[in-house]
Amino acid sequence: MTMTAAAVAERPEDQHDQTMRVARHLAAFKNIETIPLPALNGLVKQMDILRQTSLLQAPGAQRDGMCVRLPSGVGKSTAARTLVQSVARRAGLPVEQSPVLLVTLDIEETVSLWSAVLRALGDPYWDVGYPKNLMKRAIKLLAKRRVEMIIVDEFNHSVDRGQARLLMNTIKEILNAGIAPVVVMGTDEEIERLPKNNAFERRMVHAPRIGPLEWGKPTDEVNWRGFLQGLDQGIVDANILAARSGLGTKKLAEALCEACGGIIGYAHWVVQDALTEVLMRGGTSIERLDLALSVNRLYVKFELFEQVNAVAHLS
């Protein structure tokens, strides 16, 4: 017997229904568009200057690079995605065809930079072939796609895999050949462990710092509250929750800034974790207690056992 639409709507939510609903809403949360924070604009602008300078140089002339050494979670990857999206939009292209190519190095694999570039370009055989053939295919596809800049994210993983020197030399070759400017991004404590390579370092221009944000600095407070307000509104716009949760209110924002050390990546994790709990119980908003418990879980996750949970101490 077929159930009517009304009967389906009245049927109590079972475990499968709940997990599907929560998963759907979490996927929507993860798809919230990048929040354009002024704090990230300096890095985005400097990368774009590097790209546009390259476009005005003669073909084959040596290009400059940039090494972005910043703590984890401050917004390096967000700045990279922002540039990828904005350049694609200005060129009238879909993001996947952006003239800025974002290449990510995974922590558990050992591949050449050329293989990683081919994978980012969508080559199904990115890991097949001798090194010189991989290089030739990558250069050909970069030219065909008209790539104007390459951003290598998670470059610090090369330190753990012992591939740093090889990857640094490959980047130097790309710059020397005038193929495209290259930006490498990684956590400062691991990038500092890169082997000494004067030829690589000479080709790197200055990269501005973008965090952590500090409460008490007016511009940082604006950025921090803007980030939380953007997430809050994004949750409503995506129909995840019906109303805003007041994440950007001054007292709560200050407590979250202190608890998360001014790192927006930590705050994003806390909000997602708290949102998961709200969705699991069928709640209508993220409460302060949800956030306080999520901060505790953040500390366990990153072993920050000496950090004070300012959200839990809000009056």
Rank of each mutant, 00 (worst) to 15 (best):
V270A: 09
G65E: 01
V95C: 01
G216H: 07
P131I: 12
L166A: 12
V147G: 08
E109P: 03
P124H: 14
A9T: 14
G211A: 06
D232K: 08
V44G: 11
R165N: 13
A312N: 09
E33T: 15
W224Q: 14
G246P: 04
V117A: 01
A138W: 00
G65L: 09
S285P: 00
G234L: 05
Y130D: 13
K136V: 15
L55E: 11
H313P: 02
R244S: 08
V68P: 02
F155V: 10
S112P: 01
G230C: 09
W224D: 09
D153R: 01
I32M: 09
A243R: 11
V111M: 01
E154Y: 12
A143W: 04
R81Q: 12
A120Y: 02
L40R: 07
A116D: 08
R281L: 00
L293F: 03
V152A: 05
S54P: 05
R225K: 14
D220M: 02
R51S: 01
L70K: 00
V111A: 13
P131F: 11
M47S: 05
Q233C: 01
F155L: 03
K140H: 07
V111P: 02
L166G: 12
N198G: 13
R89K: 03
L105V: 14
C257T: 10
N309Q: 07
T2Q: 04
K250S: 14
D232C: 14
I286R: 04
G129T: 13
A164C: 09
A88W: 02
R288A: 07
P124V: 10
F305G: 10
V205S: 15
A180N: 09
E148F: 00
G122M: 00
L93C: 01
P71G: 11
T219L: 13
H313M: 15
L121E: 02
N41A: 14
V74Q: 05
V183Q: 00
E201K: 11
